[in-house]
Amino acid sequence: MSKLWGKKTEIEFFEKSMSFATPEQLFYVSDENRYLAYWPRGYKGKKTTLQSRNALIGDFTERWTRDLIQKVVNSKGLFAVQGAICKEIALPNNSPADVVISKTGSVHQKPEDILAIIEVKMSVVWNWELKDDKLICLGDYKTHQGNPGLLRSDSMLKAIGKSINIRVSSFKASRIPIVIMGNTPITNNYYSKVDQLKIAGIVQGFCSINPEPLDDNGENIKKTKENGFYRYDHFNELQEFFDNLLSEERSFFSSMKSKKELGHIIELANKEDSYEKKAERFLKLIKE
């Protein structure tokens, strides 16, 4: 069975990265010359910024997610594509989709071939020390000063902003689900927001694929009230989610119309003789 995110994944990231990057590009260096993934809580020494790791962990997590999603959709004959470009739905060369599920394996995509868009918001979760060429785990995210993954407000806002940009780019984007995938919980400030975003249809969910982000089985949120955020603890859970997501075509719609206009649209749509045709007529009329 495929493994979800965990400490072994982060060890893999550092070990692969150290084959071509220097320790100084991957770790902060403390006053005591310790190489640390994050500044520990209570550290009062001199601090420096570390930008070089961002691109490395970004590329690693996107590739890792692509490989994970490929296993999810293998049986359907579909493709997980990293860095997909589709200008028609606001995914240009300089801001591609992190990962898409598609009918084709090409980087250059057509809207009709894209079945889902996955935005990846992951980073190193635990604190690590490189000592004598060995990685030592110093503790989970509550023991250091970083805000990894979906715990960062700017990561949440960027994901929301990009999702809205895709949604309003074209009617061709209205049928494509958008999922934000992270490897941490979210802060309680966003509980109601992610639920509302899911209810509104902007995104189809924020999720974490890190079953145990806290050591010693520390308490962390499994899901929000309306499942706007959900933590997947097993590959089968993730598989079931995407099976359901891809099983039926969906449509996003939004509008600002008077009750009279809406009533007229509903009346006209209701004349159709099946639920599917009623929905198609409603969606067509509401866009006019």
Rank of each mutant, 00 (worst) to 15 (best):
R167G: 00
G83N: 15
R34T: 05
I176E: 00
N74G: 09
G139V: 15
S255W: 15
A173S: 12
S274F: 04
N165E: 08
A279P: 00
V100M: 07
T61L: 04
W126R: 09
E272P: 03
F171H: 07
F14T: 04
D67P: 07
A97T: 05
L50R: 11
I69G: 02
T104N: 11
L268W: 01
V203R: 02
N183Q: 04
E88P: 02
V72Y: 05
Q82R: 13
H264T: 14
I176K: 00
F206L: 09
E119I: 06
F235S: 10
S30Q: 05
Q204S: 12
K8L: 08
G105L: 13
K172V: 01
D98G: 09
N147I: 06
E280W: 02
F282N: 06
I101Y: 02
E276V: 13
K87W: 06
Q204E: 13
N220A: 10
E24R: 11
L78I: 12
K121S: 06
L50I: 07
C207S: 12
Q70N: 13
T48K: 07
V194H: 00
V120T: 09
S163I: 08
G182C: 05
W128F: 15
S155Y: 05
S123H: 04
D113G: 06
E15V: 12
S254D: 07
D216A: 15
L36E: 02
I265M: 11
I209C: 05
K142Y: 08
T49C: 03
E280I: 10
T9C: 10
F229Q: 04
Y230F: 11
N74D: 10
K172L: 13
L262D: 07
E219F: 13
M156V: 15
E62R: 09
P211Y: 11
D233K: 14
G149L: 04
A80W: 03
A55P: 00
E237I: 08
I114T: 03
K46V: 12
S174T: 03
G42Q: 10
L157A: 11
C86I: 03
E249D: 12
Y275D: 09
A37R: 04
M1V: 15
R152C: 04
M181R: 01
N54G: 12
E219S: 12
P40L: 07
L262C: 09
V73Y: 14
N227T: 06
T184H: 03
R175G: 01
E12C: 10
N189S: 09
I136H: 12
A80M: 08
N54V: 11
G42M: 06
I199P: 03
I265Q: 05
I69T: 06
Q196K: 14
F252T: 07
E240R: 08
M122Q: 14
G228F: 02
E288C: 05
S19N: 14
E119K: 12
V120N: 02
R66L: 06
S254F: 11
K103L: 14
I202F: 14
E276Q: 14
N183I: 01
L130I: 10
K193C: 12
K46L: 09
N189W: 04
Q25F: 02
Y43A: 01
S251G: 09
L285Q: 03
G182I: 01
S170I: 01
H264P: 00
E24M: 11
K134P: 02
G45Q: 08
N270K: 15
Q109C: 13
P40M: 07
A37K: 04
A97D: 06
R53K: 13
L238M: 08
I199R: 14
I118E: 01
R231Q: 11
K8G: 04
S106M: 13
N147Q: 12
M18E: 08
